[in-house]
Design a protein around this nucleic acid. Structure first.
Lengths: 191, 191
DNA sequence: GCCGTTATGAACCAATCGGTCCATAACGGC
DNA sequence: GCCGTTATGGACCGATTGGTTCATAACGGC
């Protein structure tokens, strides 16, 4: 009965990404993955080598998507608005269940920090790339390079906090209000 | 050969806490625990019921210790200094290896959010307790109750960020500078 | 010095983990 | 319509997982 159809690779990767995002790397078993991706073991190992390799692919995919999202926002609204939108979007999209999943990169940094240093470091590097986009936005908004670097670092710290907080199932206001406060401060700092 | 000596329970719990703190719940196997606690399987299950039960005990212990720490600082220095000290201490203690382990509560919220909701929620509740201490400190410092509540929420968001960031093995300055910036803002807000 | 209590080490357990292997069947080239 | 290629499902693998069972030996009460 082998070989009914060739499976859709990108669809499968997206399903895997969802699982890893929700449950983390360790808690996602091969059985979970195969069920969600709707493929068999052989196809899995033929196409993705490894559970770990697939995870890395998901990590990189997630990162590039996040950065694309930031770039697109930045092209359609004032730079600081784009940044604030990036923070708020996680909570306003009620239909988007991923609001409660935080950020795959932040999740991975924490989960793998004492377990698989390479994976943790890779996620950390992706966060650095995102921080550089923050910095570029702030410079667009008129901040000096040093100011932009400072504020971007602070914003990344805040970002990490928001992504943790978004997994705590607290009332939305408890997230949104501090975000508003923070961006009020940032706007006044670069004015 | 059984029964050489009765083991030191609190010492064993501390060893377990260290392991869970560094590696997380799932990555810490029973074998790891037994080796670190220097006890046998039977003693383990007789004294702690479960891996999960022991973890809960560690979670609660960590929380109460953290709160104690905050209370003691609060008794020996001005309230906002005590808060800032709480954030900085993680990075200045170079001898204390735990600086790179973040916060067990934050780690657990993230690791277990999509895996064991009870554990994640328990850690989250402990974070709420800590946030209330933040709030009390800020009120001590002269903030109005509403101001204190706002700033405490923002500070908890920042706290979560710092604990994530501390697991990324970045140069210390990259952590400390945003903390200093944030507390400058807080001080000016309640002045 | 005997004895019931109790904490221990070691053997054992089923279940699950990630990963490999192989016979099989659908496909494209001819 | 035959055939080599290739992707598939399912059986199989050793290792490790968290947890149980039980014989054994040290201890305190007497």
């Amino acid at each position: 009965m082998p070989r009914p159809i060739e499976f859709d690779r990108t669809k499968a990767v997206n399903r895997a990404l969802s699982l890893f995002w929700r449950q983390g790397y360790q808690a996602t078993s091969l059985a979970d993955l195969l069920a969600a991706m709707e493929i068999g073991r052989s196809s899995f190992y033929a196409a993705f080598t490894d559970k770990r390799s697939l995870f890395i692919e998901c990590l990189d995919l997630f990162s590039s998507r996040t950065i694309d999202l930031l770039h697109r926002s930045r092209a359609t609204m004032p730079p600081v608005d784009a940044l604030q939108d990036f923070f708020v979007r996680n909570f306003t999209g009620t239909t988007n269940a991923s609001g409660h999943w935080g950020c795959l990169l932040v999740n991975t940094v924490l989960e793998m920090a004492g377990v698989d240093v390479e994976l943790s470091a890779r996620a950390s590097r992706h966060l650095n790339e995102i921080q550089r986009v923050f910095q570029a936005c702030l410079q667009d908004a008129g901040a000096t390079p040093e100011q932009a670097e400072d504020l971007a670092a602070m914003l990344m710290l805040f970002n990490e906090g928001v992504r943790v907080s978004s997994r705590r199932r607290l009332p939305h206001a408890q997230h949104l209000h501090p975000i508003a406060t923070t961006f009020r401060l940032i706007r006044s700092a670069i004015a």
